[in-house]
């Protein structure tokens, strides 16, 4: 089961849309997409989680890679639209404190 990834720019902010399970199968695909766009200059990123129904540690690790690369480039990342059971994975692992999390993409764009 592959994940669908979309990307678009809102001014200078990359909006990465994820649709599917963000697990060990999908994680390399998301990391590769991000790495490509980051190398092309994207340093402000909103990740739309509204269509992500499942998140595992492999997804969390990719998000860590993203935040570290973006911070090293004086960039930023905001996560949007986490479903409650996905948010719970952040809470259990302590990742909630590492990321800015907003309810919607619009709110994330305003916050970044």
């Amino acid at each position: 089961m592959s994940m669908e990834i979309t990307n678009r720019f809102e001014n200078d902010v990359l909006v990465l849309g994820l649709d599917g399970r963000f697990d060990a199968h999908a994680a390399p695909q998301v990391e590769e997409t991000f790495t490509t766009l980051f190398s092309q200059g994207a340093t402000k990123v909103v990740v739309d989680f509204s269509a992500v129904g499942y998140l595992s540690s492999a997804g969390l690790r990719v998000l860590l890679v993203m935040i570290r690369k973006l911070k090293s480039a004086q960039g930023a990342i905001v996560l949007a639209g986490l479903q409650p059971h996905v948010k719970e994975v952040f809470d259990i692992s302590g990742f909630t404190d590492l990321f800015t999390i907003e309810g919607s993409v619009q709110e994330a764009l305003a916050a970044i």
Partner: peptide, 22 residues
């Protein structure tokens, strides 16, 4: 340790922590 407190947690570290929590 809590994965978020580690300087560079692997997905295995995070995963094992989640298993023990659940």
């Amino acid at each position: 340790s809590l994965p978020a407190k580690l300087p560079d947690p692997s997905s295995a570290n995070i995963g094992l922590y989640l298993i023990y929590q659940i």
